[in-house]
Amino acid sequence: MSCAEAFSSYALRSLGYGERLLPRSDFTLCEQVILIGSGMIWNVYFGVIALCLGFLLATAVAVGKASSKRWLRKPSEWFIFIFRGSPLFIQIFFAYALFTSLKGVSPVFDPFTSAALGALIVLLLNTAAYSGEIFYGALQSIPKGDIEAADAYGLTGLPRFRRIVWPTMLRLAWPAYTNEAIFLFHATTLVFFSGFPAWRQQGDALYYANYFADKTFNPFIAYPILAGYFILFTLIIVGIFGLVNARLNRHLPASRRSRVKYRPNLMR
């Protein structure tokens, strides 16, 4: 099979378009690169949606944890503890088992047993907990003077939060949040390895890489291809987040800007 043929058959294979049958023998490098790349669509889907929705939830959770009201603080603390204190692997397993047994109760839960929705929810809650903790830390370290100045200008409640507290919180949290985004993206590989079935062999990049490694009994081709894809996407994430970071810091003199540093100690 030529490269062009492989591309037209497998480029959208992970979404169910193109050739149904996966290659079974005489695997070419093209097939491996294209099929694994096709699987990356799922990783990007999980990563982008979980990160965007998780961001909103994380802000709410961080504000809840920093709140002085007990009924707001306690649930936020527990939420963060449960999702940060247990392995994502087990969370996904548990969620899948939970959704399958709920399916018996009511057909409403049918879509939740698919990876596209069920696993997305777990990833979303998980990243919300991790980012919530990061944002909470940032909320605690907002310079006192900023808030006093806001008070002096007569800003209170929502306007104060939206115009003073929130931008500063984001600015302080951004380097750590960049790492969180990278690791969430890496964590998306767990989905099809922990319960959620790859319907009609429509899996993510790791699913296909593992398929090739199992079939050829040769890990030295498929996994490095996958690693290459992930390094590429990690660089893209670092680039995009770097732009946002530059915007958040644009009012500061160059020496006081916070730089995004890579700190890989935030894995699940």
């Binding site: 990278i182 890496h186 964590a187 590989t189 767990l190 390895f193 790791l206 890489a209 593992n210 490694a213 009994f217 890990p219 030295f220 996994y223 996958l226 690693a227 992930f230 390094i231 990690t234 660089l235 890579y262 890989p264 894995m267």
Partner: peptide, 17 residues
């Protein structure tokens, strides 16, 4: 090495390798 690549890939890779 561990930057940029999910750890689970290493787990799957190293065992066979």
């Amino acid at each position: 090495m561990v930057r940029g690549v999910p750890d689970i890939v290493f787990f799957l890779f190293f065992v066979i390798a």
